[in-house]
């Protein structure tokens, strides 16, 4: 795949430049809200929406925003969309909004979003930026899905609230606590490292 083609800009976020596993960005919500799959998925969707919308707006305004105040402008645009998402969740999904707590407003300082604006959307066309945002959002979504699935299955014995583990399985409480989050993500990075090593040896 060549750099600069639409397919490349979309797919790089999913595996090669995955925001969580490679760039190690946006760690706080990743670790904090993934004790159940539903929370992880909700967080990923909310953050992806903010990322896509901000990329759209910022790449269209990239010639107007002066570079000396660009960071402040990006943050204000991002914060506006986060306020939108927050009000939406409060109105239609009150339980989810309650359990995500301060982590919805904290999307504002999620480095994935600001990082993509600074590194990509402020320099590329609208079409490419939106594709890039979709790719990064998808990569974020998949990482959170895997992480929260592992934690919920071992921590509660359920997946999306449905019992998947046999009755004699005793839930590992540690998986839903803070240390479990660190351990699971650490092991995920290790597994990713093994895949990458195999690939680089094969080529």
């Amino acid at each position: 795949m060549k750099k600069g083609t639409p397919v490349y800009e979309f797919s790089k976020g999913i595996w090669k430049d995955n925001p969580i596993l490679v760039q190690l960005l946006g760690m706080c919500p990743t670790l904090a809200v993934t004790s159940t799959v539903i929370n992880g998925v909700a967080m990923a969707l909310a953050a992806s929406f903010v990322l896509i919308m901000s990329s759209l707006i910022i790449s269209s305004l990239r010639k107007i925003i002066p570079s000396s105040v660009r960071i402040a402008s990006f943050i204000v645009i991002i914060a506006t969309f986060v306020t939108l998402v927050d009000s939406f969740l409060k109105a239609y999904f009150y339980d989810i909004s309650k359990s995500l707590g301060p982590f919805i407003p904290l999307i504002i300082v999620n480095c994935i979003i600001l990082g993509r604006q600074e590194a990509f959307a402020s320099k590329n066309t609208v079409k490419m930026s939106v594709l890039d945002a979709f790719g990064m959002g998808a990569g974020f979504f998949l990482s959170l899905l895997v992480l929260s699935s592992v934690r919920e299955i071992f921590g509660f014995g359920t997946w999306f609230g449905i019992q998947v583990m046999p009755d004699f399985f005793k839930p590992w409480t540690i998986m839903i606590m803070a240390p479990g989050a660190f351990f699971t993500l650490g092991i995920m990075l290790g597994v990713y490292g093994i895949f990458k090593m195999k690939k680089s040896k094969g080529v």
């Binding site: 190690l24 540690i174 606590m177 803070a178 240390p179 479990g180 989050a181 660190f182 351990f183 993500l185 650490g186 092991i187 990075l189 290790g190 597994v191 990713y192 490292g193 093994i194 990458k196 090593m197």
Partner: peptide, 23 residues
Amino acid sequence: IPEPMKGAGITLIIAGIMALGFS
């Protein structure tokens, strides 16, 4: 440290152990 765990991987595992201690 095993090769794939180097860098961020092992740091996260240590953070987990620290969190365990702090809890």
